[in-house]
Amino acid sequence: MTLKDDNDLVTGPGAPAMMPRRRFWLLPLGLGLALVAPGARAQVDPSRAGEFIRKTGEELVAAINAQAPIGERREQVAAVLRRAVDLDGVGRFILGRWWRIATSDEQQQYQRLFEEMLIRNLSSRFGEYQGVRFTLGRVQARAEDDVLVSTIVERPNSAPFGLDWRVGEVNGQPRVVDVIAEGTSLRLTQRSEYSSVITRNSGKVAPLLDAMRGQIATLAAAEGR
């Protein structure tokens, strides 16, 4: 794993976070598996990716700015995210090498908590994003399978900032696989953070799940429901 340059990362779902030199003999085996793996990602068409982000962005902005109680708006945003984000792939990427150490029960719990945390994190910031607007910038096909769609996000009384969306193709559909705010990738930052929690708890996944549960409870309490 490298934190210096996200371009170098292996990003396929379930792909190893990094390939130690000593395990090169595993490479042919890994490639064989990748070829038969279902749901493998293919290059997404750039114009389709741009259109997908425009539509998703408009849906998100409409949900955030809607005149509805917070619980309702949160449900709307959650529905958009479930449709648009490769939650499975992103969740696995963030857990990285610890995915293989986790039991299948822990994996399931983790994916559920990961989804809820993403939605709660976003809904806790609805106030901050009231009146948000965005403009679509350039769309670049990347060397890997992904397409990077740039947007500029504008909020009232606040300087505009650049938000890039990394779009991959999952099972024939475009899906968001990462969000990059001013050069900082959300999934890389979160992977570093989760790995740190697990490492500091003697390499166990359960304490991370506990921390996630605690975090969700805190966010829910702060929101008042």
């Binding site: 934190l3 806790s124 890389l188 930052t189 740190s196």
Partner: peptide, 15 residues
């Protein structure tokens, strides 16, 4: 929003 703000800051700073 962070489970480990120190680790998040470290990663964000370097990126």
């Amino acid at each position: 929003n962070s489970l480990d703000p120190y680790a998040a800051l470290r990663s964000a700073y370097r990126q």
